[in-house]
Design a binder for these strands. Structure first.
Lengths: 345, 345
DNA sequence: CAACATTATGACACCGGTGTCAGATGAGGA
DNA sequence: TCCTCATCTGACACCGGTGTCATAATGTTG
């Protein structure tokens, strides 16, 4: 089995390389007759262009990388799956780049990534979406990028997010309407902008319903199960104990649930628990967690979709066509399960 | 900032392209003086070779793909992380390729993947590790591949696994030693070879301890939480009810735990539960699941490591150096948590 | 010192595509 | 009929590396 190159096709169809290339790229100025001949040759020879050669000639790699550092495996795989969907649709491939670094080491690492793989673009996911230095660095290097779940919408880059603040508001409001007044809150990782957003939603709901904000009810977490367990330890021993806990994600909520169960507290009767993200664990435990579902795949898919668009347009002439800011906010959805109910007394 | 190519370096160092290339690839026949000059030029110009051009010239892409279809997100990310570690160490990049297809559609899909990305090699993870047609297809196409967690060790390909049969044996034996005799078993997905292995371990433990195998205690699952819930429904309503349930993975075990809790059964007192894989959920729920931990990252890392070795050697002459079969089995480890104890009565 | 082996280096073609530009072809207008 | 212009097409250089081979420089042997 010998390799089929553009030359084979050209001689088979009786035209020049360049004409084959024209057909390949849907360029204008090819007569219908010629086009048909070439397309026929494609079929009969079962030709597939070599993306590497094409990449060399066009100075493109058709590769996008997805940068992440997130404790939630389900979140990561959902990100990946959305990114892949968009990539495949446009003939791109996806490189995954988990990265725990921060500061200068992060920039060095990314620089190396850029150098060694000649990426066409980068998808930033939390907590990198709002990493100021990194964003500035990429801008300076003129590397196209898109941000998923970022908050700072004050510029012209591509950004797709869901409404964390609103989600947190709704879940807090739900608890309030059930009759809870002492609602503990566990914050997420300070690097993630969602952390602030969710906290803001919590406070807005309290304020709007005339409930006083109590600092004693707020714990610092970092989105990991472990941090949730630590926070739970503190919260569940408060006196008086809050009647509800809203954790900034489901892993931390699951940790609260486990701790409460170990203390023989009934959930939701003795203490109501709510999470965020609708991770698989939210429905794998008993009682299932009331939480907020975000369209993670869709967010990433859209981000990559627009990123590829930008890459492709930057490609053909016109230098800096300066699209208008492209910022999309999708809705998050409240999901009620068994972990929330009215307080017992 | 202009691009630094091999030509810039060559003229800067006052040598030819080819000599630069020689230094780049650590080829022999370069005098120390020349080598130093070139290395100095690398440093001063901050040169990084273009992997795409190199790929074109050598007909290599420096890309490996990881093929998977697994319901467990944590398993997937662990696979990825092991594969990435090995890839990065050798200057390769990793493409992820989740794939739900089977039969001819699967082969077509892989063929397309090969065509469009010009992979250098493929890592097969369950359930593809033991997919006969796929393996035959890859062999015929002479695409290097390595298998993770495969069972059929009857040939010369690279394969890294852990001892599922032994793990299942140990966990069953643990239950038996605690005093359980009626131990239910939930099978995994029939496509995964681990399914058979774990079942074999279960039966061997029963046999070895003189406990009669009861078909009524065995349910068909598919490794998903949902299938575990279905099986649990059946098992927990058996009469007489078994005193222990061993599910082929942690998700199904978690489903059993949830179902049992909903039925007001105490775990482990009324019913003991064991899982397999040591997924995060095993320690995120209460009571924590007794389970088997496998070195998933390490398995994949080793597989990729050897795959790259094979790719690199196939590269330089000598055609078909026919290494001896490379098959590695790592140990799995029993982890005891709170979900197992002696039967109550 | 001639004859030869070995090492070091560069010229040049090549990998498989794309960009540039000049020339061929055919339609429409004077 | 001749000229102009728009549409097609191919020759050729180029992307940034690697492989092949010839040749120059050096070392080894009889």
């Amino acid at each position: 089995m010998k390799k089929i190159t553009i030359n084979s096709v050209a001689s088979y169809a009786g035209v020049s390389k360049k004409t084959v290339s024209r057909v390949l790229n849907n360029e204008p100025n090819v007569s219908d007759v010629t086009r048909e001949k070439v397309l026929k040759a494609f079929k009969e020879l079962d030709y597939t262009p070599n993306p590497i050669a094409r990449g060399l000639a066009r100075n493109r790699s058709f590769i996008i990388a997805c940068l992440y550092d997130n404790p939630s495996k389900s979140y990561i795989t959902r990100l990946q799956s959305g990114a892949l969907a968009a990539c495949h649709q446009h003939g791109f491939n996806l490189l995954i780049h988990p990265c725990e670094l921060r500061g200068q080491a992060l920039l060095d690492n990314i620089e190396q990534l850029l150098q060694t793989s000649r990426l066409d673009g980068l998808v930033l996911t939390p907590p990198f979406s709002d990493h100021g230095e990194l964003v500035a660095f990429l801008r300076q290097k003129k590397v196209p990028f898109a941000r998923v779940a970022s908050v700072k919408l004050d510029d012209d880059s591509i950004s797709v997010r869901s409404n964390d603040e609103q989600g947190a508001f709704e879940i807090t409001e739900l608890l309030i309407k059930l009759g809870h007044k002492d609602i503990a809150f566990i914050k997420g990782h300070p690097d993630h902008s969602a952390t602030e957003q969710r906290f803001n939603g919590y406070r807005r709901a309290l304020a709007q319903h005339g409930i006083e904000y109590q600092e004693r009810l707020v714990e610092e977490g970092n989105f990991s199960y472990h941090s949730g367990a630590d926070s739970a330890e503190t919260i569940l021993h408060l006196n008086p104990r809050p009647t509800a806990v809203f954790a900034s994600n489901d892993y931390m909520a699951a940790a609260v649930l486990k701790a409460a169960t170990q203390m023989n507290l009934k959930v939701p009767d003795d203490i109501a628990i709510a999470g965020f993200d609708n991770a698989p664990i939210a429905r794998h435990i008993w009682p299932g967690l009331t939480t907020i579902a975000q369209p993670v795949e869709e967010m990433t898919r859209l981000a990559v979709e627009h990123l590829i668009e930008q890459i492709n347009q930057g490609d053909n002439g016109d230098e800096e066509q300066q699209k208008e800011p492209l910022q999309i906010t999708l809705e998050a959805k409240l999901i009620c399960r068994e972990s929330t109910a009215a307080p017992k007394s």
